[in-house]
């Protein structure tokens, strides 16, 4: 159980997040949405012990994050950054994914064990990266890159997966591929997923629950149907939209309304 209680935090003297509280259970699939600068990435950083809370607390199974060592936390929680970290020199896909086993290696243990290799083999099958193993990171396409980053995170065998806009540089085919993969992990392995997303339609389609941030506070939280209404979107994003339903999934689907059409059609 991951719990945030009245968390306020930010950088230097500037508070970015104010009074954030929510609780997540094993197997939850949460989407965090909100306009640029609303504090999504800061939320991810305070949940992964990169940024300490100024007020309030973040707890994992009742223990505050600052009482949990990075090494232990890394066995339970994996973070998928928005972009491929740029290693200073080119790694092969396999070596990069193997680094995900770092928290399981004893201090000063230089070589990975049989068990580490077995786990890595498994996550490479799962993420369909086996065919890439000898390729260099910089030679991968956007979708391959994203699968490789996720594979590294899965090699940590986490109970909690935090993803920072995993689809932002991908075409729709790869967006669906990545999110299907994340959903499969969530459904089959009961991995708790927390995903920051820009795209409201993807958030609607894949997340069981949404948190909508506005200027560092939770504006609305609930199911996609509860959060993604045209009134709320207009107020938070300052954009006029029409909310429809996906005919197959019945999830809300958002359509944009360009400015020049507003008066003609809607008045």
């Amino acid at each position: 159980m991951l719990k945030l209680e009245k968390v306020t935090t930010g950088y230097d003297a500037k508070a970015i997040l104010n009074d954030i509280s929510f609780t997540l259970e094993k197997g939850d699939f949460l989407g965090v949405i909100g306009p640029n600068g609303s504090g999504k990435t800061t939320l991810l950083r305070v949940m992964s012990k990169i940024l300490p809370p100024w007020k309030g607390k973040v707890t994992l199974e009742g223990r505050r994050l600052d009482e949990i060592k990075y090494m232990e936390l890394a066995k339970r929680m994996a973070v998928v950054p928005q972009r491929m970290p740029e290693p200073f020199f080119s790694y092969s896909v396999r070596d990069f994914i193997l680094l995900g086993r770092t928290p399981y290696l004893r201090r000063f243990q230089l070589l990975e064990s049989e068990e580490d290799l077995r786990v890595v083999q498994e996550v490479m099958e799962e993420t369909d990266t086996l065919g890439l193993e000898e390729r260099n990171l910089e030679d991968l396409s956007g979708g391959e890159r994203q699968r490789t980053i996720i594979a590294q995170a899965l090699a940590q065998e986490p109970e909690i997966l935090l993803l920072d806009e995993p689809t932002s540089h991908l075409d729709i085919g790869h967006q669906v591929e990545i999110l299907d993969l994340v959903r499969k992990l969530n459904r089959e392995k009961k991995v708790m997923v927390i995903m920051l997303l820009h795209d409201l339609n993807l958030a609607s389609e894949y997340c069981d629950r949404l948190i909508l941030l506005k200027e560092g506070s939770i504006f609305k939280t609930g199911t996609p149907e509860e959060v993604l209404t045209y009134e709320i979107i207009e107020e938070v994003y300052n954009a006029l939209v029409i909310v429809h339903k996906n005919p197959l999934s019945s999830k809300p689907h958002i359509l944009l309304v360009p400015k020049e059409l507003r008066h003609e059609k809607l008045s």
Binding site: A74, P85, T102
Partner: peptide, 24 residues
């Protein structure tokens, strides 16, 4: 320094990434 060679691998990904992988 040889004992830190694997830590150097992780560190060369970037500091925040290294933290996420449990490196002090």
């Amino acid at each position: 320094s040889f004992l830190f060679s694997r830590a150097l691998n992780v560190l060369s990904l970037g500091e925040e990434e290294a933290l996420h992988l449990g490196v002090n």
